[in-house]
Design a protein around this nucleic acid. Structure first.
Lengths: 217, 217
DNA sequence: TGTCAACTGTCAGCGGCTGACATTAGCCTC
DNA sequence: GAGGCTAATGTCAGCCGCTGACAGTTGACA
């Protein structure tokens, strides 16, 4: 009942519907402000005022100012994890992660658009990458996902995650590369889904060669 | 008292010395408090009071509360970068990074002890790993170092960092593994330098095997 | 319609942090 | 030494994020 409701699950009730509306309004207004005047330049009071709601109410919907920024990211991350779960067990760890990532990008529009315009999210991502405080939180959240993914990989391979280092190591390398791609995309000029998708694919392709200690081959 | 003493060292001024002392005092008191009662449970006012200094003065020495925590980390990171710079150019990227990391751990005592007791730093590291806000900042800082290291690697190999993805990819994989080791060490029970050193070495050894897509070999 | 529970607003307050201005104290010259 | 200069510090006021407490409002449901 507190802060982390799902954007979905409407199901009748005027009360529920109003809540849904306020939450959506807060989310969109906030992202709009963040992407136009910047995250730190935007005050929680401004957001609340724009939605005609008290500041206290804002904090009843979102645990803190950051939480608004990562509301969409939440969905995306579990989207990727779901995709990974559906990979056939025969695929090796890297193949599975790679395909899960790419297929997650492919279906991101359907996932996001009910909640937030996709282009707004894309701009939000760039705000994350360029705002130190947000980047820090983003990295920490990624680390948490990473741990979860490592667990999944260990499970797929029938390994004990605390006994065999390979799941965590492989996932660390994988998400490290993903992060590089995301970072470069955030700095680039093409804020489209296809751009980040291609970057991801290309950089993952370079992981193997990059690990050889002799690059002059 | 009668004899006028000329300061032998040019940096000997009383003013400079006092500044040094307050800074050191703030640093140690802060780390001591953080490691005993926790980072968020410690107030900047407490720290300042313990050193008989106004809160405002604290913020003149450290940009923010976090900065105290990472003061030592600063030294360590540039220590590693320096070690990497001194690696013979013939070494491949991974060999160079690996040896730089291990040699940095080997000489960490001499580096730290003038500023802060090494055991205090070790405990501080565990506070970082277990405090979400600090972990986030730590990861962001690591990302910055990563970028710097990628530049160095590119330079060693005579590559254009924006044209060839391999430097960033390799470094991302490398530091990903380092982070896993650091995280596990922070959760473990042996807060010694040798423990983290061994963990680091062992996990780096697993990077190659972990990247093979078939782990049943 | 009236009761109950959920949702919201208001208020007071804490902690991190900053700008502005006054005060102290090291430094340097005469 | 006395006095002027300036860096370092203290004090004060205030913003912003965030929280607990309490009271008022408004859906839900008998």
């Amino acid at each position: 009942m507190t802060v982390e409701q799902r954007p979905v699950a409407p199901s009748g009730g005027l009360r529920e519907l109003k809540k849904q509306r306020t939450r959506d309004a807060l989310l969109r207004v906030a992202l709009e402000l963040f992407t136009t005047k910047g995250y730190e330049q935007t005050t929680v009071d401004e957001i609340a005022d724009a939605v005609d709601v008290s500041q206290r109410t804002f904090f009843r919907y979102f645990a803190n100012k950051e939480a608004v920024v990562f509301a969409a990211q939440d969905a995306i991350e579990s989207h990727f994890v779901d995709a990974l779960r559906q990979r056939p067990p025969a695929e090796g760890p890297f193949t599975a992660m790679r395909r899960a990532a790419l297929s997650a990008w492919d279906t991101i529009e359907e996932l996001l658009s009910p909640v937030v315009p996709v282009t707004l999210y894309m701009r939000t991502y760039q705000v994350i990458e360029s705002t130190p405080a947000l980047l820090a939180v983003h990295l920490r959240r990624s680390a948490a996902v990473e741990e979860q993914v490592a667990g999944l990989i260990a499970e797929r391979e029938g390994l004990d995650i605390d006994a065999d280092p390979r799941p965590r190591v492989a996932v660390a390398a994988f998400t490290g590369v993903m992060r590089v791609a995301g970072g470069l995309w955030g700095q680039g000029e093409d804020p489209s889904v296809s751009a980040i998708r291609e970057l991801t694919a290309s950089y993952l392709d370079h992981l193997g060669p990059a690990l050889a200690d002799d690059w002059r081959a």
